[in-house]
Amino acid sequence: MVKLSRRWTCIWRSKIWFLLPGLVGVTVFALLPFADMAIRSFSNGIGNYRTVSGNGAFQLAVCNTLRFAGIGIPILLVFSFFVALGIYKSKWMRFLKSIYLLPMAVPTAVLVLIWKAFFHKAGLFNQLLAVFGIREIDWLGSEAAFWTLIISYIWKNLGYTVVLWIAGMMSVPESLAEAARVDGATERQCVRYVVLPQLKPVFYTITMLSFLNSFKVFREAYLVAGAYPQKSMYLLQHLFQNWFTNLEIDKMAAAGVLLAVFFVGCSLALQRLWGGMN
């Protein structure tokens, strides 16, 4: 009896209890179901993958999602870099950072009505543009819907990216810039030749994180424009959602595995940038 209880105490004290509950949950809710999906995706050989890659909606969604990332991310990165450069070292840094970060706290659903008032054909944005003599644009019902999405992506993520840039700039040793200044470099040369090269690793991580965050614009697109928005803002997430509604399990499984493979690649690259475990 004593022996048994000692054994239990031993197990009870074991370090495994730190990790086990979480690991069981992750296995039950993520790893096993994912394996289940991967197996289902091969339910008729590679037939499902053929169907998916030949599917018009899938091609449209992939194109739009990549186009969104390809255009949205460079704009966000450049814009936020200059903002960070301006805020950094300013005595207003804290205040400005809070303002730029505020959209992160605003739930998407809260602004649906406001976005509609802004981007409606007869809305405020068009009235503002009219002042500059720009013709009325249908921001939700035409090709321009794509740009509506870009604008809301930048609105939401600007602060996040600025904070990352500033953290990167802070980590550049002041002595380097100082030395360049002593050698007679102008402020602009300092940024171009001293700060910028040091920010290269930060640049890669920010790009990757912005890409991952770009998948969250679905919320705006869905809540403002519904399940079948204008063609130019039909994203992969819409497609998955609609396949899900129609219970097209085979297609979802194959497309899910494809997307997962792509993301595993991204994650591994990102982890390399973080320098792995210490």
């Binding site: 959602q241 899900f244 979802m252 997962a260």
Partner: peptide, 9 residues
């Protein structure tokens, strides 16, 4: 991983 991947699982 984005939610789309984990939706079906």
């Amino acid at each position: 991983l984005p939610f789309s991947v984990m939706l079906l699982p």
